[in-house]
């Protein structure tokens, strides 16, 4: 508590003498050794670019000296050439646009359906009893195993690839959404009821915002699953797209192109998680 009592109110304080602040320090007095601190990540903003530059430098050095065989690893120059070709021939855009189309349609549809079904499971015990066993049974199936089935159902075109990604992202979203609903503090729901809030208001103003942290962290997981499925689907049956591009590059031993494709995938993943991070900042600004 801040010491706000005036000195004359304190029983032992005398107004004419200052409190005894001079104390006798023995000669053998030494500071208590410090043993706290640490275990707290600090920011070192220049370290990551530095490490990247060093790795690039070592890579260039190894390739130009012949230490790294061009059959195992392309020179950085080859990757740059591959990127230049991608841009000048326009194939970057053809491959990237078709991949992004598949990724975003599949992921957005899967997430939207997943949130809907997850909310139903979270809110209605009938939906939970009916749907949860099916969700649990289908969730562990690697969705890429269903691609042949989806090709039969939706044809060899976009439908089968989008469906694979959709199914792959649907189940984790369902699970993170209903788990998020389950995690909402029941005390807050009772509070809403005690103030006579309508059922729809309780869902809209208490349950959905309360489940939002879980839903958004589910997005992170489902987005990385979506990229995996995109590449897998494109490697199995596609003419265009980043996955097909990488597969083709490998078939003709063009390691520069292969690396360029992998770098593009990494960039897609980074941009995606950056956007989800932005959304978290916006939607969860009430958290610390």
């Amino acid at each position: 508590m801040p010491d706000s009592t005036p000195p004359e109110a304190r029983p032992e304080a005398r107004p004419d003498t200052a409190p005894d602040t001079v104390i006798d320090i023995p000669t053998d007095a030494r500071p208590v050794p410090f043993r706290g601190g640490g275990f707290r990540p600090r920011r070192h903003p220049f370290l990551a670019p530095l490490v990247l530059l060093i790795l690039l430098g070592l890579w260039q050095l190894g390739s130009s000296s012949g230490f790294i065989s061009p059959i195992a690893m392309p020179a950085p120059k080859d990757v740059l050439i591959a990127f230049r070709d991608l841009i000048t021939t326009g194939t970057l855009w053809t491959n990237l646009s078709i991949s992004l189309y598949r990724l975003l349609t599949g992921w957005l549809l899967g997430a939207a359906l997943g949130i809907t079904v997850g909310l139903m499971i979270g809110l209605f015990s009938q939906a939970r009893s009916a749907a949860l066993p099916i969700v649990s049974a289908l969730f562990p199936v690697p969705k890429i195993a269903l691609l042949p089935l989806f090709i039969i159902w939706f044809g060899i075109g976009e439908g089968s690839k989008v469906a694979t990604i959709l199914f792959g992202t649907f189940f984790p979203t369902v699970i993170s959404t209903y788990a998020g609903v389950d995690a909402v503090d029941r005390g807050l729901i009772r509070m809403g009821q005690s103030f006579g809030l309508k059922w729809t208001s309780i869902v809209r103003k208490i349950i959905i915002p309360g489940a939002m942290p879980g839903i958004l962290s589910g997005f992170r997981i489902s987005f990385s699953i979506a990229i995996v499925l995109l590449v897998a689907a494109e490697m199995i049956g596609a003419q265009h797209g980043i996955g097909a591009y990488i597969l083709m590059a490998g078939a003709i031993f063009n390691l520069g192109e292969l690396f360029a494709g992998v770098i593009i995938l990494s960039a897609i993943g980074l941009v995606g998680s950056w956007l989800i991070g932005k959304a978290e900042k916006r939607l969860l600004d009430w958290r610390a």
């Binding site: 503090d185 005390g187 807050l188 009772r190 509070m191 809403g192 005690s194 103030f195 006579g196 809030l197 309508k198 208001s201 103003k205 208490i206 915002p209 309360g210 939002m212 969860l284 009430w286 958290r287």
Partner: peptide, 25 residues
Amino acid sequence: TYIFQDFALLPWRTVQGNVSLVLED
């Protein structure tokens, strides 16, 4: 009308938002 031991404020609403919650309906 209740007053709860754990306050039961919505963490995603500001002070005035928490008061406005019970008026909106």
